[in-house]
Amino acid sequence: NQASVVANQLIPINTALTLVMMRSEVVTPVGIPAEDIPRLVSMQVNRAVPLGTTLMPDMVRGYA
């Protein structure tokens, strides 16, 4: 089972991601792999991401 990136807090739209906003968790469906967390830092979300939501590739500008 692969860990995915999950929002550690509410992340408002257009917010640049920081390490404290994300955690890794084994979830279904699988989202962005946890090993990509360092790559996600400073990328912006293109929608509001509620606490506990799995980050999907289409939620992060420039990721996919």
Score class of each variant (00 low, 15 high):
2 Q>H: 08
2 Q>L: 15
3 A>H: 11
3 A>C: 10
4 S>G: 06
4 S>K: 00
4 S>Q: 02
4 S>T: 04
4 S>L: 01
6 V>W: 02
6 V>I: 10
7 A>Q: 02
7 A>E: 01
8 N>Q: 10
8 N>A: 08
9 Q>D: 11
9 Q>S: 10
10 L>V: 10
10 L>E: 14
10 L>G: 13
10 L>K: 07
10 L>D: 12
10 L>F: 12
11 I>M: 04
11 I>L: 13
11 I>C: 03
12 P>E: 08
12 P>I: 09
15 T>E: 07
15 T>A: 12
16 A>R: 07
16 A>S: 15
17 L>W: 02
17 L>K: 00
17 L>E: 00
18 T>M: 06
18 T>Y: 03
18 T>K: 06
19 L>T: 07
19 L>C: 06
19 L>K: 06
20 V>A: 13
20 V>C: 15
21 M>N: 06
21 M>L: 07
22 M>A: 00
22 M>P: 00
22 M>N: 00
22 M>R: 00
22 M>W: 02
23 R>S: 07
23 R>V: 04
23 R>P: 01
24 S>V: 12
24 S>I: 14
24 S>W: 12
26 V>N: 08
26 V>R: 03
26 V>P: 15
26 V>D: 15
27 V>K: 07
27 V>T: 11
27 V>W: 02
28 T>G: 09
28 T>E: 15
28 T>F: 07
28 T>S: 10
28 T>K: 04
28 T>V: 10
29 P>I: 08
30 V>T: 12
30 V>E: 15
30 V>F: 13
30 V>Q: 07
31 G>T: 01
31 G>C: 04
32 I>F: 03
32 I>G: 01
32 I>R: 01
32 I>N: 00
33 P>V: 13
33 P>R: 08
34 A>L: 04
34 A>E: 14
34 A>W: 09
35 E>F: 09
35 E>A: 11
35 E>R: 05
35 E>D: 12
36 D>H: 09
36 D>R: 06
36 D>S: 10
37 I>T: 09
37 I>S: 04
37 I>W: 03
37 I>L: 13
37 I>C: 05
38 P>R: 06
38 P>D: 11
39 R>T: 08
39 R>M: 10
39 R>Y: 13
40 L>Y: 02
40 L>A: 01
41 V>C: 05
41 V>P: 03
41 V>Y: 07
42 S>Q: 10
42 S>D: 09
43 M>Q: 08
43 M>P: 00
43 M>Y: 13
44 Q>A: 11
45 V>Q: 01
45 V>W: 00
46 N>H: 07
46 N>V: 14
47 R>D: 06
47 R>H: 10
47 R>V: 11
48 A>K: 07
48 A>E: 11
49 V>A: 06
49 V>T: 09
49 V>E: 01
49 V>Y: 02
49 V>I: 13
50 P>C: 14
50 P>S: 09
50 P>L: 14
51 L>K: 12
51 L>Y: 12
52 G>K: 04
52 G>V: 02
52 G>D: 07
53 T>R: 07
53 T>F: 14
53 T>V: 14
53 T>K: 10
53 T>A: 13
55 L>D: 02
55 L>V: 07
55 L>K: 01
55 L>M: 15
56 M>K: 05
56 M>L: 10
56 M>W: 04
56 M>Q: 10
56 M>T: 15
57 P>G: 11
57 P>D: 07
57 P>E: 07
58 D>Y: 11
58 D>A: 12
58 D>G: 10
59 M>W: 07
59 M>F: 15
60 V>Y: 02
60 V>R: 00
60 V>P: 01
60 V>N: 01
60 V>G: 00
60 V>A: 01
61 R>E: 06
61 R>T: 14
62 G>Q: 09
63 Y>G: 04
63 Y>D: 03
63 Y>I: 04
64 A>C: 08
64 A>V: 09
